[in-house]
Every structure is written in C-alpha cells, then in structure tokens.
Simulated scan of single mutants.
Amino acid sequence: MLSYQHLYHAGNLADVHKHAVLAVMLDYLTRKDKPLSYLETHAGRGLYFLDAPEAVKTGEAAGGIARAEVAGWFAADHPYARRLAEVRAAEGATAYPGSPLIAAGALRPGDVMHLAELHPGEFAALQAALPARAGLHLHRQDGLQMALSLAPPMPRRGLMVVDPSYELKSDYEAIPGFFASVARKWNVGVLMLWYPLLPGAPHGPMLAALEAGHPGALRHEVHFPPVRAGHRMQGSGLFIVNPPWGIEEETQRLSKLFG
C-alpha cells in the first residue's frame, strides 16, 4: 500500500515487541559460524528520527520505546539495546532503527540481505540509510514476489520478516498461501510474520490458516491500550515458523513486561 509510511508509528510498542524478538533471533542465528540470508518483504525506510513532526504528532514512540527504556525493559547487553545504541551513536540520540538496520547491525561479512520496498520515497530513504556494500540487495518491487522468486535463498540458513501495512483486506488473505509456498521451497528458513491486534480481530482467519499449515510454529501476542483516542491497535502479534531455540524464553519475558 503506497500511502503507508511507518514514520508516524516508528518506535511504538508494536515495534518494541517485533524488534526485540527479531534482535534476539538474529543474535542466536549469528552465533554459528555459517553464513545466512536475511529477507524482508516490507522494509520501509530503515532509519527513523523520533523527533520528526510525524512521530511527535502521534506520540507512539513516547508511549513505546521511550516508555520501555525508562522502565528498564532491556539491559545494555540485550541484542535490541545494542542495536539501538549503535544506531544512536552513528545517527544521533533521536534515531530509531527499523528492522533493516537491526538486521544490518547483527549480520556479518558473508551474510546476505534482500530488502524489498515498493514506495518510491521510502525506497530512496532506505538506499540512503543502507549504503551499497557486499551482500546487500535492495529491491524496489512487491516484497512477496521478491521472496517467492528468491526462495530458497543462498545461503539457505536464514530468516525472513514479513510486515505488511494491513491497510487492505488482501494483505490478510495473501499471507497463508504465501507462507505455505515459501516454506515449501525453503523448509529450513525462519519465517516471521508481524500482525496488529485490532477490534474485530481481522487477523483471525489468517492465523487459523497459518496454524493449520504450520503446526510447530510459535505464536506470540502482547496487548496494550490504544496510544490515543481513535487509535485502533490494541496489541501486537508474531507468528514464527521454525522458531530458533530459546526464543520462547524472550517471548515469555516480554509477556510479563507488557502485562
């Protein structure tokens, strides 16, 4: 959806949930001395500044990452905290990394990144945030099509993040078949889907189909009140196929923090 821009929502509680889990999974995957692939279907601009008018207007970062840090949710050696510190050291105190920068900070020489973003302005910002280097591939195209064309990627070890805007009903409808196709081609890949928890549970049929097709997957949801009047998001969900060992410990810790 070309109207969606994540700058209004960067650093909110859903980002804290998603990025903390992603950082821990990448930390685990990069401990083994074997290269891996990282794919992202809806990359966004990669780097956000939380003092931008768009971010200040919604107040979502103030109720998200700022709240989490004041409350001490993440120790300095937590993978998510390390990525935040690295990006702030390079870009300034108000900088916030999207998942492409969280991944870029965790990956090593020899690892490969494929990032898709269709929005022209967001893609240009992504290019600026992640200068060209060996192993980095930026795709201005539909992210689901990119992932299907690459699966299985080389190296075969790796992780894919799927994070649509969910502004269209078709976003929900396309995911189960897409996951089935990617998993069939890339049976060793860690596949992570993020989805919002909204009134009426529009994610319900999608999750039912995903759970039927991937019985060993991990589903983790956290709940929080809407950040402002009229805001519909009431929580954040992750569905992870082939979850890395030990990730349940982090999700259980986050469940207690979100309360």
Rank of each mutant, 00 (worst) to 15 (best):
M1S: 15
L2F: 05
K18P: 08
L22K: 01
L22R: 00
A23E: 01
V24W: 07
L26H: 00
D27V: 00
Y28N: 07
R31C: 08
D33F: 03
P35G: 12
L36C: 06
E40F: 04
T41C: 15
G46E: 06
F49L: 09
K57H: 14
K57N: 13
A61I: 03
G63C: 11
A68F: 10
A68K: 03
A68T: 04
A68G: 08
E69T: 02
G72H: 11
A75Q: 07
A75C: 04
A75W: 14
D77W: 00
R82D: 05
E86C: 05
E86I: 02
V87M: 14
V87R: 07
E91G: 03
T94H: 07
A95M: 08
Y96K: 03
Y96D: 09
S99H: 05
L101G: 07
I102N: 07
A103R: 04
A104F: 01
G110E: 09
V112Y: 01
M113P: 07
L115H: 03
L118H: 04
H119V: 00
E122F: 01
F123L: 03
A125G: 07
L126K: 06
Q127E: 15
A129T: 08
L130M: 13
P131Q: 09
H137I: 04
H139K: 05
Q141M: 08
M146P: 11
M146D: 06
S149H: 12
L150M: 09
L150I: 08
P153Y: 03
M154F: 01
R156D: 06
R156K: 14
G158E: 05
L159M: 13
L159E: 02
S165Q: 11
L168N: 07
S170L: 10
S170A: 15
I175D: 15
R184W: 00
N187D: 13
M192V: 13
M192L: 12
L193W: 00
P199T: 07
G200F: 04
P202I: 15
G204A: 15
M206G: 09
A209N: 10
L210W: 01
A212D: 10
G213C: 04
R219I: 03
H220F: 11
H223D: 08
P225I: 08
P225V: 08
P226W: 06
P226R: 01
H231Q: 12
H231L: 08
L238Y: 01
N242V: 03
P243Y: 01
G246H: 08
T251Q: 05
Q252S: 13
L254V: 15
S255R: 14
K256A: 15
L257A: 14
F258D: 06
